[in-house]
Computed example of a mutant assay.
Amino acid sequence: MKKGVLLVNLGSPDSPNPKDVKKYLGEFLMDERVIDIPYAARALLVRGIILKTRPKASAAAYKKIWWEEGSPLIVISKRLQDKIKKQVDIPVALAMRYGSMTIEKGLRELVDQGVDEVLLFPLYPQFAMATTETILVKAEEIRKMHFPNLKIESVPAFYNKSDYIEVLSNSIKRHLEGKTYEHLLFSYHGVPERHIRKSDITKSHCKINGNCCVTPSKAHEFCYRHQCLEVTRLVAEKLQLQEGAYSTSFQSRLGFDPWLQPYTDRTIERLGKGGLKNMAIVTPAFVSDCLETLEEIAMEGQEIFHEMGGHEFTTIPCLNDDDDFVNLLSNWITNWNTK
């Protein structure tokens, strides 16, 4: 069998034009694993309310961070793909869960090269319904419909792999060299609390309290909250961070349902109000810088901190196409290819 790899990231509008942003948001928000309510209610909410108001504001946000080459997330993902291709001996394609770079196109690219066994590689360290799970479900749907003879194997969440933690920790340390900071905030993308309970394979463990995420359980294999907290713990241990000098928060909530807390914007506000003058922030739920890191954190987060009296706000880039990260993914791919 000929093997190949499909890297999959979130996606992006084709341009920061409101029309393209609206099309992208419509696909993204109508995914039942992103807004997990009945179809009729979801359609009413998304098409009847959100898409009538949000595209213009989102387009303005995208314009702030758009690069000359295109969407930062797409450009960075392509750079990552290109570097990996130079280090491995099998075809490597790139796709997005949403937008014009579809998973179907990515699988077609590999099949056209004679590939009949694919390593599906969601570019997310932690498992979540709205990220990894929706990629796996969509890929299987496409396989059954268009590529029934194709074998697909997926990469599980790698949040706690020691080599990943080392690469992430070294990147954080490198970007903080020479910087003055009193507190390091680990900000992860938020999800509704009900997503955590829905992903609980034990149907009883996840209480979203101070105990369940640190109590051993099979539920942790698919618990986004546990996996985020574990990344923070492992990196803090690796970097020998002192208790109280770091914390975890969650960003990008939508709607009025309870989402994972504490919220990043309120945490930044609280730290500033509390007299903190210098802080750093890292976003380990993303491997590629995107709207949520470049605009929501680096711009809006910094503005909040300064308004609260803070001075230095250091944003640590995602791993992007960092050479150590490229080497890590390439090694994992090579090990899979040779097993």
Rank of each mutant, 00 (worst) to 15 (best):
L294D: 01
Q302F: 04
L7E: 01
V137F: 08
A61D: 10
F305L: 04
P216D: 10
A95Y: 03
G70P: 11
I135Y: 02
A57D: 12
C212A: 09
L150Y: 00
P91C: 05
L120H: 05
I201P: 02
T283V: 13
T264K: 05
M145A: 15
G301E: 01
I35K: 02
K161C: 11
V167N: 03
E177H: 11
L10M: 12
I65H: 07
V115M: 03
S187Y: 00
R225E: 14
E221F: 13
T264F: 00
Y24C: 05
L291T: 06
T293W: 03
T102V: 06
A41Q: 14
H205N: 02
C318F: 02
E243T: 10
M279L: 15
K198E: 13
A61T: 09
Q242C: 10
I76M: 14
V88S: 09
S15E: 05
A43I: 06
N160K: 11
P317S: 11
K339E: 12
N9G: 08
K277C: 01
L184C: 07
L294W: 04
D14C: 09
G26S: 07
R194A: 12
S249E: 06
K238D: 13
P262M: 05
T264G: 08
I333E: 00
E296H: 11
A157N: 11
S77C: 04
E140F: 07
A95I: 03
I304L: 06
P216K: 06
Q242Y: 10
A139Y: 01
Y224A: 08
W67F: 11
F286C: 08
A298M: 03
A130G: 08
E104C: 09
E307P: 08
T315M: 06
K105H: 03
I76D: 08
N149P: 06
H226Y: 15
K277M: 07
L136R: 09
N160S: 13
R197K: 15
H195G: 03
M308K: 13
E300F: 10
Y188L: 04
L51G: 07
T293A: 01
L123M: 14
E221G: 13
H306D: 01
S71G: 09
G210I: 02
V191R: 01
